[in-house]
C-alpha cells in the first residue's frame, strides 16, 4: 500500500527521507527551554551543540564525564585533550561552565537535576521503552559473543532524567522500523522516552501508539500510515 514513487532502500544505501541529522537536532533544540540543564549523549545528540550555536537561548549542556556548560570548539586552536565530551570528542566551555567528578556528575543525574537527557537509540517502543546500548539480541548461554557490549551512562540517564528526548537519524531499517510495538533488544530503560525526533518527524510514545506531533518536510501522512501499518505499529495524529 505504499505510494509508487517511494522506494524502500536498505539503511545506508539511500539518503533517509525527510529531515537531515542537523535538521533533526535543530528541531529538538527548539523544544529546549531557556534555563534548562540538558545532558547530551554520544553521536547524533551532540549535533544539538551545533543547533545551539545558531540559537540565543541560555540552555546549559551537561556531559556525563563531569562538565556543565559545554559548547562546540571554535577551530582547532581550542582543542584540548583534557576537555572532551561523552563521545570523547573535543569540546570547549562557556563562561559560567564548571567541572566535577564522575561521582558528582551521576549524583546530579540520579538526583533528578537534569531537565532533559538527549540520547540516540536503536529502537523505541510505543510504551516508551528505549533500546540503545546493544544491537545484539539475548544470546543463549554457551554461545560465544560476536561483539563487545558497552553501555556508558545511558541506563542511568534513562532512569533518572526528568525527560528523555531520543534523536534518530533514520526510522526506517530496510523494510522494518526502529519505532516498534515491542523490542527484542536489551532495554536501556522502560517507559522513559518522552519524545522521538527523527528523519520522518516528531513522535510521542503514548503506551499503545506513536502520536505524530509533526511530519518532516517531504513526508506525507499517507506514507507514514502505510509504512507503520506494514510493520503493525500504531500511529495517531495530533490533528
Amino acid at each position: 500500500m505504499l505510494p509508487e514513487n517511494v522506494s524502500i532502500a536498505p539503511a545506508g544505501v539511500a539518503e533517509p527521507l525527510g529531515w537531515s541529522p542537523l535538521q533533526i537536532a535543530i528541531r529538538a533544540y527548539e523544544d529546549l527551554a531557556e534555563g534548562q540543564y540538558v545532558n547530551l549523549g554520544i553521536g547524533l545528540p551532540t549535533m544539538i551543540l551545533a543547533a545551539a550555536q545558531r540559537g540565543s537561548k541560555e540552555v546549559i549542556f551537561h556531559s556525563e564525564n563531569g562538565i556543565l556548560g559545554l559548547r562546540d570548539i571554535h577551530g582547532e586552536g581550542e582543542r584540548d585533550p583534557d576537555l572532551i565530551d561523552a563521545g570523547k570528542n573535543p569540546v570547549a566551555l562557556v563562561a559560567g561552565g564548571s567541572f566535577f567528578s564522575h561521582a558528582e556528575s551521576f549524583a546530579m543525574i540520579r538526583g533528578g537535576h537534569l531537565d532533559v537527557a538527549v540520547l540516540g537509540a536503536y529502537e523505541v517502543t510505543v510504551a516508551g521503552h528505549l533500546a540503545n546500548w546493544s544491537s545484539e539480541q539475548a544470546r543463549p548461554s554457551g554461545i560465544a559473543p560476536t561483539s563487545v557490549p558497552a553501555v556508558g551512562g545511558a541506563v542511568d540517564l534513562a532512569a533518572n532524567a526528568r525527560s528523555v528526548f531520543v534523536l534518530m537519524k533514520n526510522v526506517e531499517r530496510g523494510d522494518g522500523l526502529r519505532l516498534t510495538s515491542e523490542s527484542a533488544l536489551p532495554l536501556t530503560g522502560r517507559r522513559c522516552v518522552t519524545r522521538v525526533y527523527a528523519n520522518l518527524g516528531v513522535f510521542r510514545p503514548t503506551g499503545s501508539a506513536f502520536l505524530v506531533e509533526e511530519l518532516a518536510d517531504g513526508v506525507t501522512r499517507d506514507y507514514l500510515v502505510a509504512r507503520f501499518a506494514a510493520n503493525r505499529v500504531l500511529v495517531e495524529f495530533a490533528n
Binding site: E64, S101, H102, A103, S105, F106, A107, I109, R110, V151, G152, G153, A154, V155, D156, A159, N160, L187, G189, R190
Partner: peptide
C-alpha cells in the same frame, strides 16, 4: 552502567556497603 560504577566506587571509599538506585530497573 557508568553512574552505578562511579557510585559503587564512591561507596567503597566512603564506608557504605551497598545502596539502592533506580538505574537499571526492568
Amino acid at each position: 552502567p557508568q553512574g552505578t560504577l562511579s557510585e559503587r566506587i564512591r561507596a567503597g571509599g566512603a564506608g557504605i556497603a551497598a545502596f539502592y538506585v533506580r538505574t537499571g530497573v526492568g
